[in-house]
Amino acid sequence: MRQIVLDTETTGINPKLGNRVIEIGCVELVDRKLTGNNFHRYINPDRDSEEGALAVHGLTTEFLSDKPRFHEIAAELRDYIQGAEVIIHNAPFDLGFLNHEYRALNMPPFDDYINGVIDTLVQAKELRPGKRNSLDALCDFYGISNAHRKLHGALLDAELLADVYLSMTRGQNSLGMDIEEEQSAGGIELEQVALAEILVVRASGDELAAHEELLNGLDKAMKGTCIWRTPVA
């Protein structure tokens, strides 16, 4: 499966008020592995960023003045993103801007080029209800270093989000999710070990007797039947 982790920076928070996309960062995952086939562009919006937005991303009008306009990168982005499932943190924000940019060029909206969207903010709220679920908060929770993140940047944020997404969804993998292609001492590749052959080691007679003795002691201590003797429904 091909997935693209995407982030944008913009001149403000509302495209309907004339705000524009000024940076796009994309990180490619194929079968949950980073490929290095990333996409990153700065874009000249032909306007200044609002003060609040500038404080977040630090991309000045002067810095962006010699960068391509959106119409110059639209086809390239479309071809890169075509058919992929897209992963975004707070997807309505980024998709709203990208759809607006494409419609302004009389092209089909960005939504038409992709194969579904995963919103990691929605996922995080389901996994961590009532908690802070910003990208920084999730990096802290999953132990992902973001010490180098002084300002927001689309490619850096996409790279961090890729790590967060893989950590958040690790339980969706099989039991062998992190087995590397290396050989054991016997020369058998671990990736070839069938999960159906997981060995179940049952307790020995002595171990069962020791367990029963422990339960008897618990029964005596509480003057009744301990919870460990309660049959599982």
Rank of each mutant, 00 (worst) to 15 (best):
D163C: 09
I144W: 03
G116D: 09
P108W: 14
A53L: 07
A162N: 01
Q123L: 15
G58N: 06
G143P: 10
Y102I: 03
G171S: 10
V164F: 01
E76D: 13
V86Q: 00
L105W: 14
L151C: 01
Y102C: 03
N115C: 13
S49E: 07
D66Y: 11
F97W: 09
L121E: 13
H152M: 13
S167A: 14
G96Y: 07
L105T: 06
V56P: 04
S167N: 03
G116V: 11
F93M: 11
L64W: 10
R78K: 09
H148I: 04
A91N: 14
N99C: 12
F141C: 01
A158I: 04
R170I: 15
F93S: 10
D79W: 09
K67R: 15
A53E: 01
Q172L: 15
A55Q: 01
E101Y: 03
L121R: 08
L160A: 03
G153R: 05
I88A: 04
L105K: 07
P68E: 05
Y102M: 02
H57F: 09
D94F: 00
E85N: 12
P109L: 07
F63K: 12
I88Y: 04
L135T: 06
I87W: 04
Y102H: 00
Y80M: 05
G153V: 09
N99E: 10
L64G: 09
N106L: 12
E51I: 11
F70E: 05
H89I: 05
P108V: 09
A162D: 06
K150W: 02
R69V: 02
M107E: 12
Q123A: 06
V56H: 07
H71P: 03
A158V: 15
L98P: 10
Y102Q: 04
